[in-house]
């Protein structure tokens, strides 16, 4: 084979140098701040209890953050709210996206537009609207912790719309919705059964990615939570940032690690169940 023939082939295999350059720029954009944050979080000095000496770098900032009950509490609250948000969002959007695809496909662009609303209405506007409606009587939900969390979940469900709807809708597009539905119906299944036994299980991958995105949004959300005065992770971290130097960096890194762990968990769960679902493109 001549060089003229092999050269383009090699280029196709490894990509052009420009693609690599842009890729590396992109990677540095994300990685450099991360490394800087880690480095900064390690600058907090550790005071040796015996000698009284200060040691750096150390994990002192991490120790402080993890020992702070407010940090753990905030994290747990956020996690709890995220799980509830995911459940509500799935229960709302899976049947909706399913029904729209099956019965009113012409309404799809409209529904899609509605799910994009969170991009048009900033969270600040949303939260002021919510406070106006739910703080004064007769709907004074924000007076109780439970009511506040319920309103917060509602707001987060709305925030999750663009991601969740798209994930679900993409998932639905990969299965033969109509025929599977009709097969189940002819065997005696009513609508709830069709959704629960046939549609949900075959959307596993899509639902997991939607759930992950929602988790990420809720875990890091600040604006709405802080205006409503809930003690979630976002406001806590921001408060920490106003009073301390190294601890917010450590907190960020911890939350980053938790998010990644959650993502890997999802990938692993998805893998474990892959054998049970039809490969894409099979009849």
């Amino acid at each position: 084979m001549t060089a003229a023939v092999t050269a383009p082939r090699r280029r196709r295999r490894w990509g052009s140098p420009w693609a690599w350059l842009i890729f590396l720029l992109g990677v540095s954009y994300f990685v450099i701040p991360l490394i800087a944050t880690i480095e900064f979080s390690l600058r907090a000095a550790y005071k040796d209890p015996v000698t009284g000496e200060f040691i750096r770098p150390s994990l002192a900032a991490y120790e402080l953050v993890l020992k702070d009950p407010k940090f753990v509490g905030g994290l747990l609250t956020s996690f709890r709210i995220a799980l509830i948000t995911i459940a509500v969002s799935l229960l709302l959007l899976v049947p909706t996206a399913y029904w729209v695809r099956l019965k009113v496909p012409r309404a799809r662009p409209v529904v899609e537009l509605i799910t994009l609303m969170p991009f048009v209405i900033p969270p600040v506007v949303l939260v002021f609207g919510l406070i106006r409606i739910y703080a004064p009587p007769p709907l004074a939900f924000l007076n109780s912790t439970f009511g506040t969390e319920a309103v917060l979940v509602g707001a987060y469900v709305v925030l999750s719309f663009p991601y969740m709807y798209r994930a679900v809708d993409t998932g639905l597009s990969t299965i033969d919705l109509r025929t599977l539905t009709e097969a189940a119906q002819s065997l005696g299944a009513g609508w709830p059964r069709v959704l629960w036994s046939v549609i949900f299980p075959n959307l596993r991958g899509a639902l997991l990615s939607g759930a992950f995105l929602t988790l990420a949004i809720v875990m890091g959300e600040y604006t709405i939570a802080s205006f409503m005065g809930t003690k979630t992770f976002g406001p806590y971290l921001s408060l920490l940032g106003q009073n301390k130097a190294y601890e917010p960096a450590a907190g960020s890194i911890i939350s980053f690690a938790i998010t990644w762990a959650a993502m890997f968990a999802i990938v692993i769960i998805g893998r474990a169940n892959r054998g049970r679902t039809q490969p894409a493109g099979a009849p």
Partner: peptide
């Protein structure tokens, strides 16, 4: 009423 489809329509899960 039993139904058999051209695309089999077995439940993949």
């Amino acid at each position: 009423v039993g139904m058999v489809f051209q695309s089999y329509a077995l439940f993949p899960n």
